[in-house]
Design a protein around this nucleic acid. Sequence first.
DNA 1: TGTACATCAGTGAACGCGCGTTCACTGATGTAC
DNA 2: TGTACATCAGTGAACGCGCGTTCACTGATGTAC
Lengths: 190, 190
Amino acid sequence: MAESVKARQTAEELKAAARRLLTRTTYAEIKITDITEEAGRAAGSFYRHFTDKDHLLRALVEDFEAAVREQVVSTAGHRHSLADRDDVRRHVEAYWVGYRRHHAEMAGVLQASMVSAEFREVHARLRGRQVAIWADHLAESHGDRAATAAFAVVSMLEAVCYDRLRGPSPDGGDVVETLTDLIAGGVLGR
Amino acid sequence: MAESVKARQTAEELKAAARRLLTRTTYAEIKITDITEEAGRAAGSFYRHFTDKDHLLRALVEDFEAAVREQVVSTAGHRHSLADRDDVRRHVEAYWVGYRRHHAEMAGVLQASMVSAEFREVHARLRGRQVAIWADHLAESHGDRAATAAFAVVSMLEAVCYDRLRGPSPDGGDVVETLTDLIAGGVLGR
DNA sequence: TGTACATCAGTGAACGCGCGTTCACTGATGTAC
DNA sequence: TGTACATCAGTGAACGCGCGTTCACTGATGTAC
């Protein structure tokens, strides 16, 4: 397998092309020839690097997860509590910023999760990370409803980000504030 | 066009078959021959009633909207405010019950909205109705953030219902309570 | 009430389109001596 | 440093699968007289 530099580079270009297309259209609507065309390659080139479109999306998810892991490590040591509105705001903003940065794979996975069982699981796994974080914070205050409440909060964040980050460069400040108010009020014990 | 009774009945059976399939699989995964098979008809029969799969889904949406209109009329006169936790609870429960009753078309439209531009609009329109209701309630307390807050609340309801109503008969009581707490806290003035 | 004809819903095998996928070929890069 | 050969990435026209869609036919229902 020992991939050549050139091959690795082409694979990256195909992934970059797919990411670009994902911010413009829908995963389901993207044809393999769209990806190769966007990357300036011939159709057959695709199959030297990926078995099919799902394989490429899985690769994007892996890259994404690696990037997130790195991010987490580099910001480790931050205090990590959810006691007041500012804490909530930090969490919401982090989600918003992360979603915007990885919009292509976030949208792609959500879309694919609405079609295939495989990506329903991938989506559930990614979302599960976020849910676990919130559930952890809510464990004391919400008891055995923490998981459901966390799930609801994360689903809201996802749905709003998905919708609002479609289209040209939204500023988002207002969205973050509104979501923060909603969650802070709903989640911080009165 | 003046449809015969028999033709109308077959069309209904095809729609019923599609609704059944939608609670089991995904809109995208359903083949036209799956629908005709589920309805006990030959493949060609489909095209006497619908031009394609999207046409059938649109028909399901129309039926759904008619049913909702009827429902609204029959429950008109209810007081309609959002001043305390009980009001919120009623709204949340109504959404939950409505979603469960029309799970097939709710899920189908959401799934289709992740694929085609046409159903992105249909989905936005249906969701827009709910958003308008909440935005109306929130107008005074939330000013120019009412629309965004309403959008977030409805998105949360939708995402949670979509997820929780998949699989066999969830009781939902707990879900409704948890969502109610979240929204009541987040939305009723502090 | 009966016969002859018209209309219409339903059938399912056959067709064909669109797109994923293959494969014989080209050209570039690497390796041996 | 040069030549001959091997390996590998890339090409794009051709192939073929899966599924949507058609269509000639059947049988049932409706209508005329």
